[in-house]
């Protein structure tokens, strides 16, 4: 919950999803300026978004997705009140999910 900001709006039969996730998205190639050591990679690998339980989007990500990732997409269908759920899993096995209703 805490890491995901999710918006879903339906208009003319098309639902637009906008998501903002707070995550460091560490590449694993960056160095700590103080110690000169590489910072281990830590990034979201998979994002799944469902509409009333059926998957509308599966995003597979590399560390090349910017810090605090933004994702937006559209799908046909969806009405006010429908459930939209989004979840992510990162390379360390950490995860989070959030569910909202379409406005």
């Amino acid at each position: 919950m805490a890491s995901i900001k999710l918006r879903a709006s339906a208009k003319d039969g098309v639902t637009t999803i906008k998501a903002l996730i707070s995550h460091t998205m560490e590449t694993g190639t960056r160095k700590d300026k103080k110690t000169g050591k590489k910072i281990p990679a830590h990034f979201i690998q998979e994002v799944v978004c469902t509409h009333n339980g059926s998957t509308v989007m599966t995003a597979n990500w590399s560390p090349a997705i910017s810090k605090n990732p933004y994702l937006s997409f559209k799908f046909k269908g969806g009405a006010s009140g429908d459930k939209i759920a989004l979840s992510w899993v990162d390379n360390k096995g950490e995860k989070d999910s959030h569910e909202i209703a379409i406005k």
Partner: peptide
């Protein structure tokens, strides 16, 4: 994909049956 990134593949979006071909995100280059 970003051709000159160390690892070119940035993201892969698998679309659902009713999902439109229209995605936006932010990447590192």
């Amino acid at each position: 994909l970003v051709e000159k990134n160390q690892l070119p593949l940035a993201a892969n979006f698998v679309l659902g049956a009713n999902t439109l071909g229209d995605v936006s995100t932010r990447i590192k280059m």
